[in-house]
């Protein structure tokens, strides 16, 4: 029988070591694709953020999500106090970057693919020591909800940018270019990702034990149901929104540099 202290006698089948497994399927494929996907997505956005010239992210009413909200325009003097390597985009991207870095889905993705902790289920790990998210620095992941609050605020600005992208010479002059649709889809995808957040799901109603006790708790149950619906596809929206943010920035860069024409749709 088991030792009551909880210490287990090692099963004689136990073999330790990185990638030790009896699995025969392509278990390494998912972490490999994740490394490639996150490498390309975050690699591009980091490159875009460090380029440092906001003019490349502007074209007419279009504003790249990398530069939105334009904090550097509201407080131009702030840039003079910062080191030269800090681009205007970095004033903004730390917030959505922190939101994604502490997101429960991305945690799964990078713990598996970058930290091999573990690379896949029932596959050996290269690490012997393990403290999970109980100690610094990973205990800081608990800050996720604060990044979520910031991400929701930034999302409001991205919706403003998306709607503004349908205007030209004023709020009543509606023109839809391909870029307007790109920016609109960017706001939609980011909303589907942000509003499916696990922390939001908890704060909006998940913390309640009883949904039927008062009228507001019923309202919260409806909201919780909506967030749950999005949360079930959180991984999908995490990838789609990440890819689309990069595509949106690239599109506006190409249009503003004259390498791509922005067709007027209607």
């Amino acid at each position: 029988m088991s030792d009551p202290s909880g210490a287990q006698a090692r099963n004689p089948l136990y073999r330790a070591g990185f990638a030790v497994t009896e699995r025969r399927d392509l278990w390494w494929m998912e972490p490999l694709l994740t490394v490639l996907g996150l490498g390309v997505g975050f690699g591009y956005l980091t490159w875009a953020a460090f380029l440092g010239n906001p003019e490349h992210g502007h074209y007419g009413p279009y504003l790249s999500p990398v530069y939105s909200p334009p904090v550097y325009e509201w407080f131009p003097s702030i840039m003079t106090y910062l080191p030269a390597f800090v681009s205007p985009a970095l004033l903004i991207l730390w917030a959505p970057g922190g939101f994604r870095a502490t997101c429960y889905y991305y945690r799964k993705a990078y713990y598996r693919s970058f930290f091999l902790n573990p690379a896949s289920c029932a596959v050996g790990k290269p690490w012997e020591k393990y403290c999970g998210e109980t100690e610094f620095p990973l205990v800081v992941q608990n800050i996720h909800r604060y990044f979520m609050y910031l991400a929701v605020v930034i999302l409001a600005f991205l919706w403003y940018d998306a709607l503004k992208a349908f205007t030209r010479d004023g709020p009543k002059d509606y023109v839809a270019g391909a870029g307007s649709v790109v920016l609109l889809l960017n706001a939609v995808f980011l909303s589907l990702y942000t509003l499916g957040c696990h922390s939001l799901r908890h704060l909006i109603g998940g913390y309640l034990d009883c949904f039927s006790t008062c009228p507001t708790s019923k309202l919260r149950h409806t909201a919780w149901g909506g967030v749950t619906c999005l949360n079930e596809r959180h991984m999908l929206w995490a990838w789609v929104s990440l890819g689309w943010v990069g595509f949106t920035d690239l599109y506006i860069r190409l249009v503003s540099s004259g390498r791509l024409a922005d067709p007027v749709l209607f």
Partner: peptide, 9 residues
């Protein structure tokens, strides 16, 4: 619960 790193196995 802090040991769980939500890798979903």
């Amino acid at each position: 619960v802090g040991y769980c790193n939500i890798t979903k196995c």
